[in-house]
Design a protein around this nucleic acid. Structure first.
Lengths: 222, 222
DNA sequence: ACCTGAACACCGTTCAAGT
DNA sequence: ACCTGAACACCGTTCAAGT
């Protein structure tokens, strides 16, 4: 329209994979997974239903790209210039906190184990573990175990109790849960766990698990 | 029709929660999760679309009931009369194998952390850990860590490579994956992992992780 | 090339109506 | 009480048509 030679330098509203993924992250953070619909996304981007399919193969790729974006950002932010074990702790905690801030990432990561974000976590955890002096088979065993633990924790903690953002709501939720547990199962083990449920700190418990893991790797060395 | 007093002793085709859950498990094992539809299920049961809602609140409860059924059966089958650490290993392996045989259970368990099946796993793992002599805070930390690890491993291993039932298909899949990894990431760590991917044994690697964990718990004692 | 939006082929769930 | 199945309110994805 403005002449064939005038390459318009930038249209800020032009669609692109990057813009689509950013919009998806925004919506996911706002309303959560499963509430993200192609219709809602395209409405948010003020475009046609099928437009996103020119930049992204479908909803699956969109979710995995969104998760990868979040993970990539948090991994570059984790301080790596410290003692080896502290490095592992910092990395694990960084991933934990990222998933805590973006709960949908947790479910997304355990849905498909071979997606980019998981590989990224694999690589960074492997790098930190190498600094502990392990290698070869021990390295891949330890790496695999830690990745599984971190992702498993994410899936465990992130849904449910932590999703209640206000403390009062969280407590009410946990109380209800503890009651439901003890009702159906008189096992003292369950009763004990239910009692601790109320005041326990997910983040601290997650770190305790990392420490058990580190102690196990240390012991293996000798 | 046959008289109001004749309590028909059993109609084998009568609908019940048990029968619905059993049919769901059958379909899930056959075609996998996400392929299970209410329409397919009711067709399989030769009943009307809305009939199952008289016995089950919806698809979510159905999935969680199906997973609980599978988990309950495997847990009663695990031999518990052995040395404490061996008990933990047997239990972990039992859960791993069950999820390997019913991959949809893995994804279901990490979707909702407070469902019956997860509580069941929690209890059984806690019981075994108690036999190691840990209690109080250490017990809940160790229990939480092990549950997270087991469920995380399930989600990690079960989708993808293991779902290819024939060995040739599995190898081809892993080769393709290794190639994709090394293409996008020249990191020697990734290259190494990709090389090991081909011949590695998920089950063995899972057990190695359990051993790291056990070593860590042991070390904590002292 | 990129975008539009109607059309397609599905979903899970509800509910009046039947038995 | 239990079951039926049409109806409802949605999905993700495709594709002819536009620019």
């Amino acid at each position: 329209m403005t002449g064939p030679v005038t390459r318009s330098p930038r249209r800020s509203d032009a669609l692109s994979r990057k813009r689509i993924v950013a919009a998806a992250i925004e919506i996911l953070d706002l309303v959560g997974e499963g509430e993200l619909t192609v219709r809602g996304l395209t409405a948010h981007l003020a475009t046609g239903r099928g437009a996103i399919y020119h930049h992204v193969s479908g909803k699956d790729e969109l979710l995995s790209a969104a998760a990868d974006e979040v993970v990539a950002q948090v991994l570059t932010g984790v301080p790596t210039d410290q003692e080896a074990e502290a490095g592992v702790r910092a990395l694990a905690l960084g991933i934990f906190d990222a998933i805590d801030a973006h709960p949908w990432v947790g479910t997304q990561l355990s849905r498909e184990p071979l997606q980019p974000a998981v590989l990224r976590i694999w690589t960074s955890i492997g790098t930190q573990l190498q600094r502990l002096g392990v290698d070869g088979r021990t390295l891949s065993d330890a790496g695999s175990a830690l990745v599984s633990y971190v992702l498993g924790s994410a899936a465990q903690y992130v849904t449910g109790p932590r999703s209640a953002s206000d403390e009062a709501g969280r407590q009410a939720y946990l109380d209800k849960l503890a009651l439901a547990w003890t009702e159906h199962d008189p096992d003292p083990l369950v009763t004990g766990a239910a009692a601790q449920l109320r005041e326990h700190d997910d983040r601290q418990q997650f770190l305790a698990g990392v420490d058990i893991f580190l102690a196990g790797v240390r012991r293996r060395d000798r």
